[in-house]
Write a protein that binds this DNA or RNA. Structure first.
Lengths: 162, 162
DNA sequence: ATATGTGCAAAAGGTTTGCGATATA
DNA sequence: TATATCGCAAACCTTTTGCACATAT
């Protein structure tokens, strides 16, 4: 049956090949932020007639079409997630590499204000938090999470382990 | 005379070679966020006995020592700036590639709160704004700026041109 | 004197691309 | 059938590394 991403592809007039259909399904089913290698692995499991070059080309195409968004969580490889996932950002657990999604309206307002103060219209922005799970007084978590793919901290900002 | 970065190197017990001294000077004089290629260019202008491998090694070493911070503004290459530059973030002009620094205390508080809500201690974070200069009602700018090195928007978040 | 740093060139790792073959609309 | 896509392998680009030589402490 037609996956959500496939439907979006058709809507934008993309030619649907077998490979593209498989990749669309993998993306539709992904609840995390896989990199190209991982997408290739999952797609190959469904249909082994897919080359990694096609995954690269497809992912790039879908990003241009606004269907996918590219993320950089450090580690040198791009990671992808479907757009229209709602507006959110990511908190990366520096010990496990797990990615937690969140959104925050106040934060968005603050950013708008900062840009305006500098004389700019805010076109887009990028925010990633790197944190360590608080040991004692636990607080409810209510966000999507990722399979870990290794700790990382591309900011080097302050005290994160390398 | 001894540059600021050189002094920091000595304090941390680094062996000061001629090459390292030159790179330290280039970094001390940099008011922007140069990538390795640019550092290599500037260092070579002062002393042509420097290889790009040494620049890579030095920049990595200084980052490990906490003297430099690595940044990723998109475009595939890492860019560097001295630490202790005060805590700040960057707004990238998507039309010109110019980088403008800013800081905002309220924003920091909001991030702390977000992490806490998710049950994490905030170790570090990364924030970049991508904006377009507002045409009419100009507002004072009071921040450092960069020589442009090409527009970029690694977020792909919303409407930024590619 | 000894541990470290350097230059060179090769290698690595992720991503892109040219080309002939193939499949979609 | 015309055109877009695919697979393969080579090319690319940034960054890292092995090795022999040079240098700071």
């Amino acid at each position: 049956m037609e996956s959500r991403i496939e439907r979006l592809c058709v809507e934008r007039g993309l030619k649907m090949t077998g490979q593209r259909r498989v990749i669309a399904r993998v993306l539709s089913d992904a609840a995390d932020h896989p990199d190209v290698e991982e997408l290739y692995r999952r797609a190959s499991a469904l249909d082994n007639r897919i080359s990694i070059a096609t995954v690269y080309r497809t992912v790039r195409l879908l990003e241009e079409k606004g269907i996918l968004e590219r993320r950089d969580f450090g580690g040198g490889r791009a990671r992808y997630e479907p757009s229209e996932h709602g507006h959110h950002h990511h908190l990366i657990d520096i010990d496990t590499g797990r990615v937690i999604e969140f959104e925050d309206a106040e934060h968005e307002r603050v950013l708008q204000a900062i840009a305006a103060r500098l004389g700019f219209d805010l076109v887009s922005h990028r925010l990633e938090l790197f944190g360590r799970k608080r040991p004692a007084g636990a607080v409810a978590r209510k966000a999507g999470e990722d399979r870990p793919s290794g700790p990382s901290d591309p900011t080097g900002s302050s005290g994160a382990p390398r």
